[in-house]
Design a binder for these strands. Structure first.
Length: 414
RNA sequence: GCCGGGAUGGGGUAGCUUGGUUAUCCUAGGGGACUGUGGAUCCCUUGACUCGGGUUCAAAUCUCGGUCCCGGCCCCA
């Protein structure tokens, strides 16, 4: 028995219908913010991801050589491909570019709850500017999408990577040791961050101030304590968000996020109903295009973990009802099957979702099948009906049924 | 890569401690009882011990390893 590979999933029709529905909710919201959808290849030159994330990334992605000896990789994320696309063919478009995408990504990792080797991301990028309006727009879009999906419990935290970086630089922490310290601070591992700071020669007083800043959380007023241009900037972002009616995002200066291509604002969303893998969204402002051979352009973007957010909705008890077919055509006897096929075709050509018994089942079994397929109406076609140019229509929910003329049948589904 | 718990028809399960006939029950799928009316009932039928090695007269059951799943660590671009 061959099964699907580790960390991948099959999506059966019910599940797929649900996923498509929510994908389209996200597409619609992104559209209302003026974003337009794009798609990039599933695989890219491996170097695209190496340039962005360093050579160690190769251990964590599906990288391979093709028959032409090219080094390729299944995409582990979509920001790099989108920026590559911008550099290749969109660098002279009017700015800002507002792009969104939905697609699968692949990472060679140990699967666990909410983590797969093939997973789906919905993301958006704004390319061409770095200011408070841009950052606020990205956050507002993310929040609107989460809300539109119907997720109730979530937490949005906004930080600014520059504030802690500036403090570390002022304390004379060398550039190459910074990332490790920031990572510890991001995880609230203060003991380890402390020993790293002290061994970098930072005095106790500075360490204390750094910890205080990293632990700063709350509304925009907490920014008043910080004397840094970035704090004033973040206050502006928060004010714009307020004007956009986004009030449930809070400041957390400990949000530092992974790699150092982030340049300023960073944010993430988590769903507390999930376990260890509870982050459902992450993003910030960055500058990548110059690494791929283009001019330096500031951008802001984020990605939503589609599988995780669906999982969180499920855990909150949100259910999804599959639509089923509008009409299920049931021929009463074999000698009316051709007529039944004609009527089904007529309904289909009018855009009505129509199924028909093609198993040559007896009528009772066909009715049973119509019920289990979730049909709204059974369209019963027999000799006596056809003699009067009619069919019998049965409402499968109420059980009411009546004869209806063929030329009126279509109107029933409007 | 590391730690822990698992794996029995399509789905859900009993059996495993204490090895021993044809592997339990529910559900689902196909057909029939019912020759023109669904979710009911009854009958027939399809369908499983994760894979490989070991112990044994005999393994779903004991044992070792692989694979996969679940939870966590690491990582999380």
């Amino acid at each position: 028995m061959i099964r699907c590979p580790r960390g991948t999933r099959d999506f059966l029709p019910d599940e797929m219908e649900r996923r498509r529905h929510y994908e389209n909710v996200l597409r619609t919201v992104a559209g209302t913010f003026g974003f337009r959808e794009i798609a990039t290849p599933i695989f890219e030159e491996a170097s695209l991801f190496v340039i962005k994330s360093g050579p160690n990334i190769l251990d964590e992605i599906y990288a391979f050589k093709d028959k032409g000896d090219r080094d390729l990789a299944l995409r582990p994320e979509l920001t790099a491909p989108v920026v590559r696309m911008f550099v290749n063919g969109m660098s002279n478009e009017p700015r800002p570019l507002k792009l969104f995408y939905f697609g699968q990504c692949f990472r060679y990792e140990r699967p666990q709850s909410g983590r797969y080797r093939e997973f789906f991301q919905f993301g958006a990028e704004m390319i061409g500017n770095a200011n408070a309006e841009t950052d606020a727009e990205a956050i507002a879009l993310a929040v609107s999408m989460i809300k539109a999906l119907g997720l109730r419990k979530y937490k949005i935290r906004i930080g600014h990577i520059g504030i802690l970086r500036n403090m570390l630089a002022e304390a004379n922490v060398p550039q190459d040791g910074m990332q490790e310290i920031l990572q510890k601070l991001d995880k609230k591992m203060y003991d380890e961050a402390g020993s790293l700071l002290r061994s970098a020669g930072v005095c106790d007083d500075s360490v204390k101030r750094i910890f205080e800043t990293a632990g700063t959380t709350g509304g925009k007023e907490v920014l008043d304590k910080i004397t840094d241009d970035a704090a004033a900037y973040m206050k502006e972002v928060m004010e714009i968000l307020e004007a956009m009616n986004v009030t449930d995002a809070e400041i957390d200066l400990g949000v530092v996020r992974g790699l150092d291509y982030y340049t300023g604002m960073v944010f993430e969303a988590e769903a507390p109903s999930l376990g260890a893998e509870k982050q459902i969204c992450g993003g910030g402002s960055y500058s990548l295009s110059e690494l791929f051979g283009g001019e330096k352009v500031f951008s802001t973007g984020f990605a939503i973990g589609f599988d995780r957010i669906l999982l969180a909705m499920e855990k909150e008890g949100q259910t999804f009802r599959n639509k089923g077919v509008d009409a299920y055509v049931v021929p009463v006897s074999d000698d009316v099957r051709l007529e039944a096929v004609k009527i089904a075709s007529m309904l289909r050509s009018r855009g009505i979702v129509t199924d028909i018994d093609i198993m040559r089942r007896k009528m009772a079994k066909a009715m049973k099948h119509a019920a289990s397929a979730g049909a709204r109406y059974a369209v019963i076609i027999g000799k006596s009906e056809l003699e009067e140019n009619s069919v019998t229509v049965r409402n499968m929910e109420t059980g009411d049924q009546r004869m209806i003329r063929l030329d009126e049948l279509f109107g029933l589904f409007l």
